[in-house]
Design a protein around this nucleic acid. Structure first.
Length: 613
DNA sequence: AAAAAAT
């Protein structure tokens, strides 16, 4: 399914000749003309010629450059989610047919679908019609917050705009996944959001659609200040690894094809010059890793003044010890509009309570949404734990690989992703596998960016069906056809385990996860046993014994009930009591506790436990 | 203790 996208995009780049109708918008004549001449906000781009009704530009104090937002968010009261027409009702007027590419486009927008614009092409066998929606039935959903917008059941119910709808069809998304059903209306209503949902369940689309749609509508779009070579994106999407940023960029490009919305990616390890050129051609949505973004900000090549949407993917990772200072710098110490002015969306499959607490610094009056894990907590992923001494790990792995090779599906060996703890360990295991005749490659932070991307490509294509990885590959990467995840070294954090095994069993498909457990892992025994139990997995008796023996969950949080990475910490009394807390203070502007007022839908009310506790 | 992320 998705794997083909990237390849198709690459292949089509060359042969992408005369399909679009958008060759000559702005002054197409002089190829070398400066590209910055006239700024045209996204919602005014691609106007065919005339009679397109004007996009609804809401009342926003314009004029004064700089932080030109009024008091509240651009475009009207935040809680007036009727204006977005999410709930059936108002197909908010008139931005009908958009065609064509970019106003600045002397270049042609590469068709990321590689399908010659033929929306009605025959369904591609390995495209994504294979989503097993039955696997998403009866998934527990928890929302909390004031006035939570109700979910939708179809894309048609939402006024995303024709161009975006067409891309949804091109992606062969038939109906929204659970996280999309809930998150999109919340986001379209302008609300901040903290969402727990397994990657592979359509998280990226859940935050991309509202962003793209919002930028197209162009509410409050204003002319950015004319800084030398500074660009002013409307949306910023941050992710913890370069490869994940690349992947998000690829997806976002598909969703925004021919919408006039431009998506650019920036990450380290790659030459910055190409990225600077991409930025100069215009950027509405910037996808980035933190380090490179800080670099761009310090060079004043990017300004965050115009940011209306901030999305953190793998948000708990972004806010943990390693990343938090950088994120704070970007979000709080540069020129980004404050929370309450911008719209902030945090997504992850796991959300430890301490991190939720941290995250509330970035949010305003947010909705908490938890959608039960699609793969890792259900029967979709069969989890096995085997007791394997360090000295036996390699030969044991070889046994597994032999067995799997024998079972090879469709003539090809199924993909196996092997996680190890260290970069050295990755190299050494890869080398050993290679010496023993197994086609393996490796991805970790000591490899060059080229090598990393090459390894991932080679793995995805099946060329090298074994990938040895550190945690760089643990989160978010969508690699179809991973049949088996091996935790050669068990991670020290149960959340990492959850993310790792989530590389299989995606989009409702089944998968297998095997972990090599030994005396070095006792600290994780309890958390692991608990997780497996919750996921209806068979817990070996010996593991239960380790679990009982281990001193209460090791240093791992996630204690107390309510797993599934999903429960609003605002409901946890232990976080609410005790003084100057988040919750108690009365009128903390960024709080707005979930149960404060009546008339909220979809929640349970204060003190009431949710369905899955 | 390790991994990731800017040069």
């Amino acid at each position: 399914m998705r794997s083909s996208w990237a390849d198709l995009a690459a292949n089509s780049a060359a042969e992408n000749a005369a399909s679009g109708s958008f060759a000559n918008n702005g002054g197409a004549g002089t190829a070398s003309a400066p590209t910055r001449a006239a700024y045209v906000p996204p919602h005014l781009r691609n106007r065919p010629t005339s009679s397109d009704p004007p996009a609804p530009v809401n009342s926003v104090p314009s004029g004064n450059d700089g932080a030109g937002y009024g008091g509240s968010r651009w475009g009207g009261p935040k809680y007036d989610y009727n204006r977005s027409g999410y709930g059936g009702g108002g197909r908010g007027g008139g931005w009908g047919s958009r065609s064509g590419g970019w106003d600045r486009g002397r270049e042609r927008e590469v068709n990321p679908f590689g399908d010659n614009d033929d929306t009605e092409q025959a369904p591609n066998e390995q495209d994504n019609t294979g989503i097993n929606f039955d696997a998403y039935e009866d998934i527990p959903v928890e929302t909390s917050g004031d006035n939570v917008p109700p979910p939708v059941n179809t894309f048609a119910e939402i006024d995303l705009g024709e161009a975006l709808n067409q891309n949804i069809r091109r992606c062969k998304y038939v109906k929204p996944t659970p996280v999309q059903r809930h998150a999109i209306p919340i986001s379209l209503a302008g609300r901040d959001l903290m969402a727990c949902a397994q990657t592979g369940s359509g998280k990226t689309a859940a935050f991309c659609f509202p962003i793209i749609s919002g930028i197209m509508k162009g509410e409050g779009a204003q002319r950015p200040p004319r800084g030398a070579r500074t660009v002013y994106p409307f949306a910023l999407i941050l992710s913890p690894t370069r490869e994940l940023s690349i992947q998000i960029h690829e997806e976002a490009r598909k969703f925004s094809y021919q919408t006039g919305v431009r998506v650019v990616v920036a990450y380290g390890g790659a030459p910055i010059n190409q990225q600077l050129r991409d930025l100069e051609r215009g950027v509405d949505i910037l996808v980035a890793t933190p380090g490179r973004l800080v670099d761009l900000l310090e060079r004043a090549r990017v300004s965050l003044q115009m940011i209306r949407y901030l999305a953190l993917d793998e948000a708990d990772r972004m806010l943990d010890m390693g990343f938090e200072p950088q994120i704070r710098k970007i979000v709080e110490q540069m020129d980004m509009p404050p929370q309450g002015v911008r719209q902030t969306m945090l997504f992850s499959a796991t959300f430890p309570k301490e991190i939720q607490r941290l995250a509330s610094d970035f949010l305003s009056h947010y909705v908490f949404l938890a959608v039960g894990r699609v793969g890792s907590s259900t029967d979709l992923i069969v989890q096995r734990v085997e007791f394997v001494l360090e000295s036996d790990k390699r030969s044991h792995l070889m046994d597994l690989l032999h067995a799997q090779r024998a079972n090879g599906a469709q003539g090809k060996q199924a993909l196996t992703l092997v996680f190890v703890e260290t970069k050295k360990g990755a190299d050494s295991l890869e080398n050993w596998l290679y010496m023993n005749g197994f086609p393996a490659t490796t991805i970790h932070g000591d490899r060059t960016q080229q090598e990393r991307e090459q390894a991932l490509r080679s793995f995805k294509s099946g060329n090298t069906p074994i990938l040895v990885a550190t945690d760089v590959a643990a989160r978010g990467l969508d690699i179809p056809h991973v049949a088996h995840v091996v935790n050669f070294d068990i991670p020290n954090d149960i959340d990492d385990y959850v993310h790792r095994i989530g590389r299989t069993g995606r989009a409702g498909k089944t998968g297998l996860a095997t972990a090599f457990f030994n005396e070095n892992n006792v600290s994780l025994a309890k958390a692991l046993a608990d997780l497996m139990q919750e996921s209806n997995q068979e817990v070996p008796a010996w593991l239960s014994r380790y679990a009982a023996r281990s001193s209460y969950g090791g240093r791992n949080r996630r204690s107390g009930g309510g797993r599934f990475g999903g429960r609003d910490f605002r409901r946890d009394s232990s976080f609410n009591r005790g003084g100057s807390d988040y919750y108690g203070g009365g009128g903390g502007s960024s709080t707005g506790g979930y149960g404060a007022s009546g008339g909220y839908s979809g929640g349970y009310g204060p003190g009431v436990t949710s369905a899955w506790d």
